[in-house]
Design a protein around this nucleic acid. Structure first.
Lengths: 121, 121
DNA sequence: ATAGGTAGTTACTTTTTGGATACCATGGAC
DNA sequence: GTCCATGGTATCCAAAAAGTAACTACCTAT
């Protein structure tokens, strides 16, 4: 799994440490809207494998962002939902979403210009 | 370096793709306050090696978040600063910083208990 | 001619992360 | 007794990211 004992120099590292992972951002965004079952997440993430999805979910759980609720049924039903701390990320996630959108557009349009090395003295 | 041609399922992936890197978050936070020279960043990040710092800066530059300005002097002087797009992340970064602080406090309590137990043995 | 300061680079190794594929447990329906 | 659906595990492997240590280029000042 993931070791998270390191020392941080800056508080933003804490957040990034918790949110950086191939699928974590999207998972958190999805869960802002709805609770989801394992399979529902898997379907929405499309290309994620069960192993990796489990990993991401477990880490988010360890970090206190989501809860895993098992309904004792057959076939099993497991629902993932946000904790209050996960919900606290909502605004941040939305801003990141927005920035991502505009950045994506930008790259689509005019990312051909090279940034030149300005020469000053 | 880093390949960034993948397809995104969700706009937040764009942002995370650009910001996730061992030192990128901190670098961006620092640059919100001030422009910095290579050596100044290196000193503030303390444990970063020049290779990795260069990598992180180059990728941020490629992604259009920062600018690299070379002053043609000897010894060289290279200053890194934010582009408008980098500045657009300011609010987001601040929110992440804040969340990180509270999260750290939260786990800080548990962590301290664990540490003190360990210290007793 | 030698040393010094800045901003790197190069080559190599290790660690971390993610992916492919196959398999497992449960209990009810048939 | 076999099949099904769900929610996973178990192995093994590849790719990506980060770390280590040594080296470079430049001109200036001594």
């Amino acid at each position: 799994m993931k070791e998270r004992k390191k020392q941080y120099f800056h508080p933003i590292e804490v957040t990034l440490d918790v949110v950086c992972g191939k699928w974590k951002g999207v998972i958190l965004c999805l869960l802002q809207e709805n609770d989801y079952r394992f399979g529902e997440l898997k379907d929405q993430l499309y290309s994620v494998t069960p192993k990796v999805l489990t990993q991401q979910l477990r880490e988010l759980e360890e970090d206190g962002l989501i809860t895993r609720t098992v309904y004792p049924q057959v076939p099993p039903k497991v629902v993932y939902s946000l904790t209050p701390y996960g919900k606290d990320l909502e605004d941040t996630l939305r801003m990141m979403e927005k920035w991502g959108q505009s950045h994506q557009q930008r790259v689509g349009d005019n990312f051909n210009e090279e940034v030149s090395e300005a020469e000053l003295s």
